[in-house]
C-alpha cells in the first residue's frame, strides 16, 4: 500500500434514520497512521459516522473508500472489509459466555481459521499488551469496566486490523477507570495505529490527536490540529461547544 493512499475516504456521505437526516454530505479523509478524534454534542452524528465506516450502519448515499477500495455493501464482502477495521464499543460488548481469552481468540479461530494453539499464542500476546494476561481464564463478569474495555481492545487488536475505530470507549466507565483505557489507546497511537476516536475526553484529544473534527447536527463544522481547534477555533459553534465541555 502506498503511503499516500488514505486509510479511509468518505465522500458526500448521507445517512437517514427514517426521516431524520443524521449525516449530511460528510467529506472526510483519514490518513494512514493518523489519529483523528471526533467531538461534538450527543446527537451530532459522530457515532453514526464512525459506525458507517465499518458498515454497522449502512450509508444512504455517498462513498466510503477503505484503503483505496470503494466499498459497495451490496457487492463487496463486508466481512473481509471489517477484518481490516477493529472496533471498540462504549459498552464493551464482550461475549459473556466466553472467557477473556475465549473472547480474544473467537474470531481468530472462526474467521481467520487459525488452530487453537496459534490463536491462544496471539491472543495472550495482546492480553499481555493491555496488561491483562493473568485474567485470561476468567469470565468477563468478574472484571472491572476498565479491564473489560482493555479486553475488548485486545480482542479487536488480535485480528491485526489496519485501523481501529473507538466509539466513546470511556463513556461507560467510572471516572477512576478511564485512565487505564486511555493509556492503552495512547500507546497504540504511539505505535502508529490509524485511529478514529469518538470521545468526550478532551484531554485525550488534545494530547494524542493529530486532528480534531468537530461535528454538529450531522455536519462537520470544523477540523484541524488540536492546538488550533482548542485555542483558536474559527467557528462560533465550535467555540461555544468547547466552552461548555472544557
Amino acid at each position: 500500500m502506498s503511503k499516500q493512499q488514505p486509510a479511509i475516504e468518505v465522500k458526500s456521505l448521507n445517512k437517514y434514520f427514517g426521516k431524520l437526516h443524521v449525516l449530511k454530505d460528510i467529506d472526510m479523509t483519514i490518513n494512514e497512521n493518523e489519529v483523528v478524534v471526533l467531538i461534538g454534542a450527543s446527537g451530532s452524528g459522530k457515532s453514526t459516522l464512525l459506525r458507517c465506516l465499518n458498515f454497522l450502519e449502512m450509508k444512504n448515499g455517498g462513498e466510503i473508500i477503505i484503503e483505496g477500495e470503494n466499498i459497495d455493501p451490496k457487492k463487496d464482502n463486508l466481512n473481509t472489509v471489517r477484518q481490516r477495521i477493529g472496533m471498540v464499543f462504549q459498552h464493551f460488548n464482550l461475549f459473556p459466555h466466553k472467557t477473556v481469552i475465549g473472547n480474544v481468540i473467537e474470531a481468530l479461530i472462526h474467521v481467520k481459521k487459525m488452530n487453537k494453539e496459534e490463536a491462544v499464542t496471539i491472543g495472550m500476546e495482546y492480553l499481555e499488551k493491555v496488561g491483562l494476561a493473568e485474567k485470561a481464564k476468567v469470565y468477563p463478569r468478574t472484571l472491572s469496566g476498565g479491564q473489560k474495555q482493555r479486553v475488548a481492545i485486545a480482542r479487536a487488536l488480535a485480528m491485526e486490523p489496519d485501523m481501529m475505530l473507538f466509539d466513546e470507549p470511556t463513556s461507560g466507565l467510572d471516572p477512576e477507570l478511564v485512565g487505564e483505557v486511555l493509556e492503552v489507546m495512547k500507546n497504540l497511537a504511539k505505535e502508529g495505529m490509524t485511529m478514529v476516536v469518538v470521545t468526550h475526553e478532551m484531554g485525550f484529544a488534545r494530547e494524542v490527536a493529530d486532528r480534531v473534527v468537530y461535528m454538529d447536527q450531522g455536519v462537520i463544522i470544523e477540523e484541524g490540529a488540536p492546538d488550533v481547534i482548542f485555542e483558536q477555533a474559527a467557528e462560533e459553534r465550535t467555540q461555544e461547544f468547547l466552552s461548555r465541555v472544557l
Binding site: 466481512n79 472496533m87 461475549f95
Partner: peptide, 17 residues
C-alpha cells in the same frame, strides 16, 4: 443485546456465525 451481534460482525464474523 444488539451489541453482541455488532461486536461479532465487527470482528468479521458472518451473520450466521
Amino acid at each position: 443485546d444488539r451489541g453482541q451481534t455488532e461486536a461479532a460482525r465487527s470482528l468479521g464474523m458472518t451473520s450466521t456465525m
